[in-house]
Design a protein around this nucleic acid. Sequence first.
DNA 1: CTCAGTGCAAATATTTTGCACTATG
DNA 2: CATAGTGCAAAATATTTGCACTGAG
Lengths: 151, 151
Amino acid sequence: MATATTESISVNLINALDDRGLRRTSARAAVTSRIEQISDAFTAEQLCRELPGVGRATVYRTIRHLVDAGALCKLPILDGAPKYSIARVEHHHHTICSRCGAVGEFRHSTVERVMRSLGKEIDGDIVGHRMEIFITCNSCLAASRSGESGG
Amino acid sequence: MATATTESISVNLINALDDRGLRRTSARAAVTSRIEQISDAFTAEQLCRELPGVGRATVYRTIRHLVDAGALCKLPILDGAPKYSIARVEHHHHTICSRCGAVGEFRHSTVERVMRSLGKEIDGDIVGHRMEIFITCNSCLAASRSGESGG
DNA sequence: CTCAGTGCAAATATTTTGCACTATG
DNA sequence: CATAGTGCAAAATATTTGCACTGAG
């Protein structure tokens, strides 16, 4: 699944802020560089916890700028706080384990093709789409095989 | 878009609660019948406002039961509170206007076919999926054509 | 009669905002 | 130096929970 061909494509978040005419501040540098270190999806809270030197409001504000700039994707988690993940240039979708919440990525060209054919059926302009596949990930499957008491 | 063949398929929410062994109470009847009257997606808050005789907690608890029963789908709205819509038996997806927030439904058999082919690429068991198409709906398109001052 | 269910209000969780202060450009 | 940006804490928003009371079975 993890496509090795997907190099670090423009994962330069502070640059995305520059492009919006925002100043380069130490708080923003701290936030963006921390995000770049996290390979996984993260929550705003998590970032606040990991960056005690940066105010909560600033973390939230910086995340919002990055989302607005299209550098991060915000993915809604039905249970609680949304997660964010770096928006690599290549469009992708997410897998979410419904047990442990682990987030993965995948790409599938067919999905894009389907979008095009959907255009005809939909009343308005398509400006984007989101697709999440809910899975039970392999580790959770393994865990349930040992713990299950048989329904 | 609106498939006329999709009759009112088992839109009997109180029944869904019965099936779970939950009691028939007046509060639950009020909540479920109100939901059945709303043809659109709604928020928990909205329901509370429209049912001042029912406690907020009860509204939330009833919604949760209905979601657990599969009678309602919970759809995450990135800005704020999730919306709920009656889960008709036929699997469907949603369109969300990114300007006005209007929610629509659509079905597309190809989507299901894509899911099947995705199974091979994904690490774990697929237990569900969610797909939202973000659109600018026709009314918002019309509005922007008159109000737009050019980028 | 018993306990699931209710309603309230307080507790939680998450995000935003007001404001005085700081540091970028 | 002007003002965008910051950090704090309080406010706003969204949802859950504790608990005494009520009503369904």
